[in-house]
Amino acid sequence: MQLAGKHVLHAAPTRVWAILMNKDTLAHIVPGVSRLEQTGDHTYKSILDIKLGPVSGSFTGNLQLDDLQEPSAFTIKTQQNSKIGNANAAIAINLTPVGDNDTEIIFDGDVKLTGMLASLGNRVMGGVSNTLAKQFFSNLEKELDKEPAP
């Protein structure tokens, strides 16, 4: 399944970048995180609790930030396993400065689902991913609001 979209944030790319690269803030931003444990440079073990329409589940897996080009681009790679199926995603993220103090985030990637997620969840996946993406950006905005711009 293709996952793509964009969102404009009221902060410069460097600030956005810093928040996304910080383990503690990242845990607040990624929807459904109940545990995030750093295992290396930008690699994490995670437990996520996510509800996808008729199916909900607890996912365990890893999360990796890769292809880092500070402060303009990186890729989120993740492999999540659960009793209701596995999800495997690679999503490219681009941060483009807009005006003096804004950033446009463009994301584009592919999510592969298996098990019940694929056979029962697919129908609602589009809606669910939009919701998760919205949550991600609203959480990110909240983090940006916490510390005023320098």
Binding site: L113, T114, A118, S119, L120, N122, R123
Partner: peptide, 14 residues
């Protein structure tokens, strides 16, 4: 089927 071979409408809801 999706391109990964998952049957995406494997229930009476779908």
């Amino acid at each position: 089927y999706d391109e990964n071979g998952q049957l995406t409408n494997a229930s009476y809801m779908d």
